[in-house]
Amino acid sequence: PVYLSVKADNSMFIGNDPVTDETMITALNALTEGKKDTTIFFRADKTVDYETLMKVMDTLHQAGYLKIGLVG
């Protein structure tokens, strides 16, 4: 499974590897070998604001990742 996490300080990680807004999709493409039907499990600290969550989800959708599971 692929886990994308947003921490309380808005830092992002794919698994244990830090990513930025600019590198997130490139890292996901490498990890999933470009398979856009891969489910991305998205988790965020409860203090992360809604705007940040939606920005990340919008970026995922624009890149073609449509299977996003929200996890606690």
Rank of each mutant, 00 (worst) to 15 (best):
P1A: 12
P1M: 12
P1T: 12
V2P: 04
V2Q: 03
V2E: 01
V2D: 01
Y3W: 13
Y3H: 09
Y3T: 11
Y3V: 14
L4A: 02
L4S: 00
L4D: 01
L4C: 03
L4N: 00
S5K: 08
S5Y: 14
S5C: 10
S5P: 01
V6I: 15
V6H: 02
V6N: 01
V6P: 01
V6W: 07
K7Q: 14
K7C: 10
K7T: 13
K7Y: 15
K7H: 14
A8K: 09
A8V: 05
D9R: 04
D9L: 05
D9W: 07
D9H: 07
N10Y: 12
N10V: 03
N10C: 07
N10A: 10
S11V: 12
S11H: 08
S11W: 05
S11I: 11
S11Y: 06
M12H: 02
M12T: 04
M12F: 07
M12C: 04
F13G: 01
F13S: 07
I14C: 03
I14D: 01
I14P: 00
G15Y: 04
G15W: 04
G15S: 04
G15E: 05
N16L: 09
N16S: 12
N16H: 09
N16P: 08
N16A: 12
D17M: 14
D17V: 15
D17L: 14
D17H: 13
P18V: 08
P18R: 15
P18K: 12
V19W: 01
V19I: 12
V19G: 01
V19T: 05
T20V: 04
T20A: 04
T20C: 04
T20W: 03
D21M: 15
D21G: 12
D21I: 15
D21H: 15
E22M: 11
E22W: 05
E22Q: 10
E22K: 10
T23Y: 07
T23L: 05
M24Q: 00
M24H: 01
M24A: 02
M24G: 00
I25S: 02
I25R: 02
I25L: 11
I25N: 02
T26F: 13
T26G: 13
A27S: 08
A27D: 04
A27V: 15
A27N: 06
L28C: 02
N29E: 14
N29H: 12
N29M: 08
N29L: 09
N29Q: 07
N29C: 04
A30C: 06
A30R: 13
A30H: 10
A30Q: 12
A30L: 13
L31F: 08
L31V: 15
L31M: 08
L31P: 01
L31T: 07
T32W: 03
T32G: 02
T32Q: 02
T32F: 05
E33G: 15
E33I: 06
E33T: 08
E33R: 09
G34K: 03
G34Q: 04
G34I: 02
G34D: 06
K35Y: 08
K35R: 15
K35M: 08
K36P: 05
K36F: 08
K36D: 03
K36R: 11
D37K: 05
D37M: 07
D37I: 03
D37N: 09
D37P: 03
T38E: 07
T38P: 03
T38N: 05
T39D: 07
T39M: 15
T39F: 13
T39Q: 15
T39W: 15
T39R: 10
I40N: 00
I40H: 00
I40S: 00
F41E: 08
F41Q: 05
F41I: 15
F41Y: 13
F42E: 00
F42C: 07
F42Q: 00
R43L: 15
R43T: 14
R43V: 13
A44C: 08
A44S: 07
A44I: 14
A44M: 09
A44E: 03
A44V: 12
D45C: 05
D45G: 04
D45R: 01
D45S: 05
K46V: 12
K46E: 14
K46L: 09
K46H: 11
T47C: 11
T47D: 15
V48E: 02
V48N: 03
V48C: 05
V48A: 09
D49F: 06
D49Q: 13
D49G: 14
Y50M: 12
E51K: 12
E51P: 07
T52W: 15
T52R: 12
T52V: 14
T52I: 13
T52M: 11
L53Q: 05
L53E: 02
L53C: 07
M54D: 06
M54Y: 08
M54E: 07
M54C: 08
M54I: 09
M54N: 09
K55A: 09
K55Q: 09
V56I: 14
V56N: 02
V56E: 01
V56M: 08
V56W: 06
V56Y: 08
M57L: 13
M57W: 09
M57E: 02
M57F: 11
M57P: 00
M57T: 05
M57R: 07
M57Y: 08
D58L: 11
D58Y: 11
D58E: 09
D58T: 12
D58M: 12
T59H: 10
T59A: 14
T59P: 01
T59M: 15
L60Q: 00
L60T: 00
L60R: 00
L60H: 00
H61N: 12
H61M: 12
H61L: 09
Q62D: 12
Q62E: 09
A63F: 05
G64T: 00
G64L: 02
G64S: 02
G64M: 02
G64W: 01
Y65I: 02
Y65K: 00
L66R: 09
L66P: 03
L66M: 12
L66Y: 13
K67T: 12
K67H: 15
K67E: 07
K67R: 12
K67P: 04
K67A: 09
I68L: 07
I68A: 04
G69R: 15
G69Q: 15
G69S: 15
G69A: 15
G69V: 15
G69Y: 15
L70T: 13
L70E: 07
V71N: 10
V71A: 06
V71M: 10
V71W: 08
G72C: 10
